[in-house]
Amino acid sequence: MTVLGPNESILDPREAALGTEGLVRRFGEVTAVDDVTLAVPSGELRAVIGPNGAGKTTLFNVVTGLLSPTAGRVWFEGTDVTDAPQYERPHAGLARSFQSNELFTEESVLENVRVVVQTAEYGPFGLDLFRDAASVGRERAVEILDRVGLDAAHDTLAKNLPHGDQRRLGIAMALATDPDVLLLDEPTSGMSPGATTKTAALVEDIHDSLGLTVLLIEHDMDVVLSISDRVTVLDQGRAIATGPPEEIRTDDDVQEAYLGGIREEL
């Protein structure tokens, strides 16, 4: 495999598990995502890297429908989902976690995950008034919490969890939607080296044993090198290169983007 330049891909975005075509998102004068074409094949663990402000989170936001694109299309498993409402995407199999700890803060850890399992079960709107929700989706929620290592914290309020556990709870909730493609926005941010390794292993485990396609925004290069299949580099909103981690590391353009940026700052 070799490193692909901007917007070249080995696959038609329309046939990928997740694809974008010429995706653009502007905020006033700022172009946060600039003509990005991606094609992530089914089953791949794709890392998305780039300096702060490169547009990684905005890319996730547009792909998952939190923001609408200024131009371009988003393809999910062969369908154009660009105009689909955000809340429909998890039900189609496209889920995400957030860079900041977004939680149902006043609820227990178990309830945080359970209510998502319940949502996956009922669809975007469920008007079941007669059951006791405590039993709906509980088993699966417990199972997922076991997987992410939060089995001892079921009854803790989400807001009282330590930061690292909150990050993991975010992953658990994304998993609870039962996704095919999972977008993780800096799952290890703010974690100690030990916790980072543990979380990286968790991501790898999710990818390997559940067979999910994973897009991972990650700053820790050791994590990127050790677990990703391929890497896409964003710089100033543009996808400047895509390729296997080792080759990306030695690629001239990438070096220029990163080091050049640092040189300018100095």
């Binding site: 998890p90 939680l103 149902f104 803060t105 609820e107 939607t177």
Partner: peptide, 16 residues
């Protein structure tokens, strides 16, 4: 209650 707690998250998790 999920909507009350975090509307954006609820939407991202599939709630209308």
């Amino acid at each position: 209650v999920a909507v009350r707690e975090n509307e954006g998250l609820a939407r991202a998790m599939g709630m209308n």
